[in-house]
């Protein structure tokens, strides 16, 4: 789950709408009421949420690829079964989220087609490769850890179907983080080579994971509307700081070094990190990360190769409908 980086609101193209209705809508939000699919909502609220939830769904689906890469090469049957279950969960999370997005009026097919056409974004983090088994541990520990940080506040998002999907996702996600950390503990207690592998994975993933929380607050233009609508409860920098503070002691436990020599703890107890390379983030979002083309190509291939299954299922359903109609007519 991975939308923070992509959160933007459509405040600018908001049409002038019935002011009374808009005020009543905001009053409901302020009173912490949940908005449900058939309720009136501003067009920009609908559009913002459709985009955010569908991008979140795409991220879950594309997120299956880097981890799926290691299912056949997992080091033991226990690890393989856990990884397979985790990747199945990611698929499930994508489907809960597509269903939530569809309650806003978009069709599943339309949303998927936008992603396949490269017109919809997904989280930048999945455009990095999984080079070693330690990457699977690091993804569970850090990527899912960051995702949980981001998703817990979304359980209280003002839009009912999104909040409910998030509650379910969060319940399932905690296993993901723990299985990742367990892999890291095992490697960290292993041979020198295994320790080096764990350190190398942390070195490669650390900065991209911090970027998952999205641009720094002063550069984010759209945060206000999402905050006012209670889609977003914390700013990007607040969540990033929470994540760093939670993660540093875990890295210390593992005996691994966070690849940020300038990092220090301030008087308040927060860990201050060095400047993030936002150019890299922009490049990856723009399609120039290490695996962007691979990821889209893999999704398109799966979609195209599954076409005959969808067609056959539809033809069979159609045949059965005809038979039932014919029997009813007799």
């Amino acid at each position: 789950m991975y939308t923070q980086a992509l959160n933007t609101s459509d405040a600018d193209d908001r049409p002038v709408e019935d002011a009374t209705r808009a005020a009543a809508f905001q009053a409901r939000i302020d009173a912490e009421e949940r908005i449900e699919p058939n309720d009136w909502m501003p067009a920009a609220y609908r559009k913002t949420l459709t985009r955010q939830i569908s991008q979140h769904a795409h991220s879950e689906i594309v997120g299956m690829l880097p981890e799926g890469n290691w299912i056949t090469r997992a080091p033991s049957l226990r690890r393989k079964a856990a990884l397979l279950a985790k990747v199945q969960d990611e698929c499930g999370h994508g489907l809960y989220l597509y269903a939530a997005a569809e309650t806003l009026g978009a069709s599943r097919e339309e949303l998927v087609d936008l992603m396949l056409a490269g017109k919809a974004k997904y989280s930048s983090i999945f455009n990095y490769p999984t080079l070693t088994w330690a990457d699977i541990g690091t993804i569970g520990w850090l990527v899912d850890g960051a995702a949980i940080m981001n998703q817990i506040p979304l359980c209280r998002c003002s839009y009912g179907p999104y909040a409910r999907a998030m509650i379910r996702v969060c319940k399932e996600e905690s296993f993901h983080q723990r299985q990742g950390f367990e892999i890291m503990v095992t490697l960290a207690r292993g041979s020198e080579e295994q320790k080096a592998m764990a350190q190398d994975a942390l070195n490669r993933w650390w900065w991209p994971v911090l970027m998952m929380f999205g641009p720094p607050d002063q550069a984010s233009q759209h945060g206000d509307t999402s905050t006012r609508w209670k889609i977003k409860r914390f700013s990007n920098d607040e969540l990033r700081q929470k994540f760093v503070d939670a993660t540093v002691p875990q890295a210390q436990y593992l005996g691994l070094t966070i690849p940020d020599p300038g990092m220090k703890q301030n008087e308040a107890g927060n860990w201050e990190y060095s400047a993030i390379d936002w150019d890299e983030f922009k490049q990856v979002l723009a399609g120039n990360g290490p695996c962007n083309r691979d990821r889209l190509a893999a999704r398109r291939k799966a979609h195209d190769e599954g076409a005959w299954v969808r067609e056959a299922a539809e033809a069979y359903a159609e045949k059965r409908r005809h038979r039932q109609t014919a029997q009813a007519a007799e």
Binding site: L95, A99, R108, A165
Partner: peptide, 18 residues
């Protein structure tokens, strides 16, 4: 929740999996 399927049999199977 909800899901997409072309008929009742597939809907039940998908509900079980999902």
């Amino acid at each position: 929740g909800s899901l997409h399927a072309s008929d009742t049999t597939m809907a039940l199977q998908a509900a079980r999996d999902l």
